[in-house]
C-alpha cells in the first residue's frame, strides 16, 4: 500500500468511525439494540494498531478523543485519555499478538474494549451521575467483537505476507 493511499485510508476510516459512532437510532428502538452499538472508534484504532501501528499517532488520538467528547457530551478529556491509553497499551500488546494474530488480537480487543467502556462508565458515574449497568458495558463489547471478526482475514494475510518476506 502506497504511503499516501495508506494515510488517506487511515483518515477515511477515522471519519467513518466517528460518523458511525453518532449515527442516530430511532428513539423507540429497543434498549438491547441501542446497547449493541459497537465502539467503532476502539475497533478502528485497534485495527490500525495491529495492521500498521506506525500510523497511530498519540496526538491524533488525543484530537479525535476531544471530538468524541463533544459529540457524546462527555467531559472534555475523557475520550482523549482513553484513546491515548488504548494506543499506548495496544502497541505494547503487539508483541504478544503477532505470533497468532487472529485469536490473540480478538482477545486483546475484548479486554481493551471492556476496560475502555468500564472506565468510561465509571468516570461518567463520578462526573455526570450516570448509573452503571452491566448491559451498558458488556453488550457494546460483544458488538465490537462481532464487528471485529471480518477484519481478522485482512490482518492474517498481512502478517503471513510479512512472515514470508522475513523467511
Amino acid at each position: 500500500m502506497s504511503d499516501l493511499r495508506g494515510w488517506a485510508l487511515f483518515i477515511c476510516s477515522m471519519f467513518v468511525a466517528l460518523v458511525l459512532s453518532v449515527a442516530p437510532l430511532p428513539f423507540d428502538a429497543p434498549n438491547w439494540l441501542k446497547n449493541l452499538r459497537p465502539d467503532w472508534l476502539v475497533l478502528i484504532w485497534f485495527f490500525w494498531i495491529v495492521f500498521q501501528h506506525e500510523r497511530c499517532s498519540l496526538i491524533v488520538a488525543f484530537g479525535v478523543g476531544l471530538l468524541l467528547d463533544v459529540l457524546f457530551g462527555d467531559p472534555l478529556g475523557l475520550n482523549s485519555l482513553l484513546l491515548v491509553s488504548l494506543i499506548y497499551v495496544g502497541r505494547y500488546a503487539l508483541r504478544w499478538i503477532e505470533p497468532s494474530v487472529g485469536l490473540r488480537s480478538s482477545i486483546a480487543l475484548v479486554i481493551l474494549c471492556f476496560l475502555v467502556t468500564a472506565i468510561k462508565s465509571l468516570v461518567q458515574f463520578i462526573t455526570l451521575d450516570v448509573q452503571i449497568q452491566l448491559g451498558y458495558i458488556l453488550l457494546p463489547v460483544l458488538a465490537t467483537f462481532l464487528c471485529w471478526i471480518p477484519f481478522i482475514p485482512a490482518l492474517n494475510s498481512k502478517h503471513s505476507q510479512f512472515r514470508a518476506g522475513v523467511h
Binding site: L58, I59, P75, G77, S80, L81, V84, S85, Y88, T127
Partner: peptide, 19 residues
C-alpha cells in the same frame, strides 16, 4: 513515545478535571 504518552495522559486528565 512514552514521554509523549505521559504528557498527553496528564494533559487529558487535567482537561477532564477542569471540564
Amino acid at each position: 513515545s512514552t514521554y509523549l504518552f505521559l504528557a498527553l495522559f496528564i494533559c487529558a486528565t487535567l482537561l477532564l478535571a477542569v471540564s
